[in-house]
Write a protein that binds this DNA or RNA. Structure first.
Lengths: 110, 110
DNA sequence: TTTTTATATCGTAATTTTACGATTAATATT
DNA sequence: AATATTAATCGTAAAATTACGATATAAAAA
């Protein structure tokens, strides 16, 4: 198999998992941290910043773009990536629905 | 390939990604939500709650246990799982280091 | 227009993930 | 002791992920 049985779960559970998955690789964490760190658009220098091959970075950027966490603007021969703030907030809200479940629970066993 | 180049990233980036990965499957989200919902230990009924085979659930539980988000106590023939609150908080702090990067940034382009 | 530069896409290999039947292990019940 | 119950582990198939060389694409520079 290797195929997630999406239909067994709620739309919400699938979405939360999908967001978490976007963050589930150190290269994508590094990319996001870098975009945030320069506080503006990023162009090709992500490849230099992170020591992975250009097609690999391009692939990770695509994944982040697909879930909507970043957006890219073509600027001449290079592409300028930046955070999609609206979607970033949606993602945070999405994730907080599980992350903050602890605040409503009492550690009653184990 | 198919192997993540862990050595190219910081320990922190790898840890954040590792935590996100634990949440990156709807079955694990469902399991966590369920454990929180009954506010106490869960035993085998997770298998009934979620429509996946017993070995599959067992495998997901193992992953959650490996990253430390849950712990299991043997109680007779069944095993009682519950949230590891200390590690849950550590995980939240870990994730918030990227999730909250937006609060320090100004949307300056795109 | 040719060449350079920057990025995306294609193809593919290695690995990991997901899923589950079959089996094992460990305890409880009869 | 024999049987039933519950969960873990084994083995394995299918699919997804990660990585990258080669190539394509598109715009800028020469």
């Amino acid at each position: 198999m290797g195929v997630t049985k999406t239909e067994k779960f709620t739309e919400h559970q699938n979405q939360v998992a999908r967001m978490a998955k976007a963050l589930a690789h150190p290269a994508r964490i590094a990319i996001l941290e870098y975009i945030f760190s320069i506080d503006s658009c990023v162009c090709g220098d992500i490849v230099n910043e992170i020591g992975l091959a250009q097609p690999t970075i391009s692939q990770h950027l695509k994944e982040l773009k697909t879930v909507g966490l970043i957006k890219g603007n073509v600027e001449g021969t290079s592409v300028c990536y930046c955070i999609n703030y609206d979607n970033w907030l949606l993602m945070k809200n999405m994730l907080s629905t599980i992350l903050d479940l602890d605040t409503k629970s009492i550690d009653s066993c184990c």
